[in-house]
Design a protein around this nucleic acid. Sequence first.
DNA 1: CATGGGATTGACT
DNA 2: GTCAATCCCATGC
Length: 215
Amino acid sequence: MTAHPSPRAAGPAPPAPLEAAFFARPVLDVARELVGCVVEHGPAAGVIVETEAYHESEPACHAHVGSTARTHVLFGPPGRAYVYRSYGIHALLNVVCEPEGVGAAVLIRALEPLTGVELMRERRGLQREEDLCSGPGKLTQALDVELRHNQVDLETGPVRLLGAAPGWEAPRLAVGPRIGITKAAELPWRFCARDSRHVSRPWPPGMARAGSPSR
DNA sequence: CATGGGATTGACT
DNA sequence: GTCAATCCCATGC
């Protein structure tokens, strides 16, 4: 608006899109490190505060049955979206991981709203910020992610996955079993930002915790 | 071609 | 705490 824009006037530089090489690694590493990264669709974006890992070697993963019309994308190039309909109602967003040929993905389970919060409120029909993206079906509604985004390249968009948000470079994590599954339910493959009020479910008391996203 | 099972959510007892 | 809504798709006849 004025003649002397300061480099800091617009806030920190937005993170760059994550590249395919980031996702072409063990799915557990990617699931841990995605906490703190940003999902963006047009004007709406949020910081990932909860993920789960899925791998073809265990039966909770859709890729466990092999490559079918539904699971084909899971075996394809890393960094693409796998979006499927859950319980006939909700679209759930995953990122394909591991090298091409290996069926694996990270489920994005919850976000902390970052931009476009009013648009999220309209889409969700709710006001409380903690209710907008605190679940895998909620965040897709808030970001308008649908089945048409299946197989989208998350580096180029329109739905994009960006690097760590400012201040989220190494969030403390809580680790525990995945939610809502009956098979391989014992594996501790769920990763949450510790103490976040935007996770899909309150953290059960006495559950194992870990301090750092990696190493 | 018929059937059944979900990586959920919101409303209700 | 319980439960129904609703649709994609894997499986089996």
